[in-house]
C-alpha cells in the first residue's frame, strides 16, 4: 500500500502531508523548547506549513480536474504570510535581545517578572 502511494502521481494530498509534518514539528518546537530563539524557529516552521497548503491549493497541476480552488489567491496569501513572518521575526528578535540584556538569559521561564 505504501509502495502504491509512492508510485502514484503527486497530488494535493502529498503536499498537505508535508505541510502537516512541518506544522506539527513547529508546534512541538514551540511547546517543548525553552529558548526564545528556538521558539521563534518553531513559529517559522508553522508559517511554512501553512504556506505549503496555500500553494498546493493554488496549483492546478496537482488536481485531476485541472483547476484549483484558489488559483492566484493562494499565492498572494502565501506572499503576504511571508512578509508578515519577516516583520514578526524582526520585532520578536528585538524583544528577545531586550529580554536578554535585562535578564542575562534567553530562557523564557525566567521571564516571570514581566507580569505587572
Amino acid at each position: 500500500m505504501i509502495l502504491a502511494g509512492i508510485l502514484s502521481p503527486i497530488t494535493v494530498t502529498h503536499y498537505l502531508v508535508v505541510g502537516i509534518i512541518l506544522f506539527v514539528c513547529g508546534i512541538v518546537c514551540l511547546v517543548v523548547k525553552r529558548n526564545i530563539i528556538a521558539m521563534l524557529i518553531g513559529v517559522e516552521l508553522i508559517l511554512n506549513g501553512a504556506n505549503i497548503n496555500l500553494v498546493a491549493f493554488s496549483s492546478p497541476q496537482l488536481f485531476a480536474s485541472g483547476t484549483a480552488p484558489l488559483l492566484l489567491d493562494g499565492q498572494v496569501f502565501a506572499l503576504f504570510v511571508m512578509i508578515l513572518a519577516a516583520a514578526e521575526a524582526a520585532v520578536a528578535l528585538a524583544i528577545a535581545l531586550q529580554f536578554y540584556s535585562r535578564f542575562g538569559t534567553v530562557d523564557v521561564d525566567q521571564g516571570g517578572q514581566l507580569n505587572g
Binding site: 503536499y15 517559522e44 511554512n48 504556506n51 500553494v55 498546493a56 493554488s58 496549483s59 492546478p60 497541476q61 496537482l62 499565492q75 502565501a78 506572499l79 511571508m82 512578509i83 513572518a85 519577516a86
Partner: peptide
C-alpha cells in the same frame, strides 16, 4: 507546484 515567484521570494525573504 508552479509557484516560481513564491519560490524565489521564499529563498530571498526567508
Amino acid at each position: 507546484a508552479g509557484a516560481e515567484f513564491l519560490g524565489a521570494m521564499q529563498i530571498m525573504i526567508y
